[in-house]
Design a binder for these strands. Structure first.
Length: 108
DNA sequence: GAACTGACTCAGC
DNA sequence: GGCTGAGCCAGTT
């Protein structure tokens, strides 16, 4: 972990996401300084789903649970979010604008 | 060591 | 207004 991995930065930010909140790949990528690498953010989680990363709090810019299928069960990601008070409608987060957590603003 | 891929995002048509 | 194409970086093959 001492290795300066772009992934490690992603994990750290995702872990800092408070319960009941969610962020987007682009927001994390922007916080890291590279808005263009939004794909890497999601991919980072895919490569490290085995770790204690609350990846269920990370969704795409539309608030859709794009990676829910990677959790093994399609409903697993949704239930995790609902357990935190996040409303999910058709695999999409309701009031996403309200629960949206921007690391570049919250963490500063 | 080079090519491919990948849970996204933006812009153009 | 919805779909397609191109771009991004780093890990995997």
């Amino acid at each position: 972990m001492e290795k300066s991995s772009f992934f490690q930065d992603v994990y750290d930010v995702v872990k800092l996401i408070p319960p009941g909140r969610a962020t987007s790949y682009g927001a994390i990528a922007h916080y890291l300084g590279t808005k263009s690498s939004a794909r890497m953010v999601g991919w980072a989680l895919n490569s490290s789903y085995v770790q204690d990363i609350p990846a269920h709090r990370v969704v795409n810019r539309k608030g859709v649970l794009t990676g829910k299928v990677y959790f093994g069960d399609s409903d697993r990601m949704q239930k995790l979010l609902e357990a935190e008070g996040v409303k999910i409608k058709d695999n999409q987060i309701e009031n996403f604008d309200q629960i949206f957590w921007d690391p570049s603003k919250e963490l500063l």
